[in-house]
Design a protein around this nucleic acid. Sequence first.
RNA 1: UCCUCGGUGGCGCAAUCGGCAGCGCGGGUGGCUGUUAACCACUAGGUUCGAGGUUCGAGUCCUCGCCGAGGAG
Length: 373
Amino acid sequence: MFEFRVVAECPDTGARAGEFVTRHGVVETPLFMPVGTQATVKAMSPPELEEIGAQIVLSNTYHLYLRPGADLIAEAGGLHRFMGWQHSILTDSGGFQVFSLDGLRKVTDEGVHFQSHIDGSRHFMTPELSVDVQQKLGSDIAMCFDECVALPTTEEKSRAAMERTIAWAARCHDFHSRSDQALFGIVQGALFEDQRIECAGRLMELDFPGYAIGGLSVGESHDEMYRILDVLHPVLPQSKPRYLMGVGMPENLIEGVARGVDMFDCVLPTRNGRNGNLLTSRGRINIKNARFERDFGPIDEMCDCYTCRNFTRAYVRHLYRAGEMLSARLCSWHNIHFLVHLMRRARASILKGAFSAFREETMKMLQPEGIAQ
RNA sequence: UCCUCGGUGGCGCAAUCGGCAGCGCGGGUGGCUGUUAACCACUAGGUUCGAGGUUCGAGUCCUCGCCGAGGAG
């Protein structure tokens, strides 16, 4: 059911434009997926996400398993119907929570003992349970349950997590049965090139319809992230989509695309938006700053999102300082629009054979020195 | 006119027995990368109403004054 095809490739870099089909429609890559952990992209409604042009959103197995529960969502007719989103959905497996809920969990080869961050109740998440939940949710793309290690780490710890991730991937693969849902494998291996290559190769033996690169954007430098992407680029199958998990800084997206990445997701546009940090074509701005008090221009001169078409920096700053919820909405709206359209423009440039110029120009604009006003 | 209570950062308030003047909000700034996050961190800001006095040392005790709130007449 799930099929990916490359429609254009950049002659100078690893960038490619592609598309895949889910039962909820055609999805064009490269793309950015807004994060909707709790079956909602915080502060945004589905029609607003549609207006922005989001093609697929991400939701989370661990969070929905704890509340409201996979059976309830299945009973509601599946996650799409439950949250009122007719387009594609990717569900993360809960693997990232193995990393982020440090202190509330214990990892064993069999699975992960969690203590709920909501009520302290004890749970045991396994690869099978993660896939079971994701099948009940009915997402278009499910992710293997993996172990994401914190950086910096040692070669031994990384290898242990990598081996566990591979073993769990095989168990996910065996357990997975929904033919209308794609299951992606996740490459781990921290910043060790040999481990990354080995992990990719062993996952490829399972022939997943797509491959994710996990364990990055967890504190390493950009150069280290790019080095791992460079290493994986020639290894991963050209004919399958590659998904760089958790990456959302504009420059990371551009450089990721240049290294063959097709999909990204990140909480950055929504979380930072709620906290008054805004992405612009000339770098990031903090709308809280006093210098915007009487700035009656748009957030970003180059942007045509709803926020930029209708409101000024001075107004958005006022909303933020006043604690008004419209601030979170307008800032999230703009930030998501920024990343979705950054990827849309990247795609257009690849189709035109002009990605290198697009990359150079965009990266130059995004430099901190580029911050005007 | 008398009595009582109060006066401390921009605002609201703490400060033990007389012993390094703090907290919250607000202000300024920074951070946030598969969301435990409309969050977190840092920072600036003081003649403690005024004038005297006691004391090694006073936001704190004493005297007088000023201002505010309440009560009595």
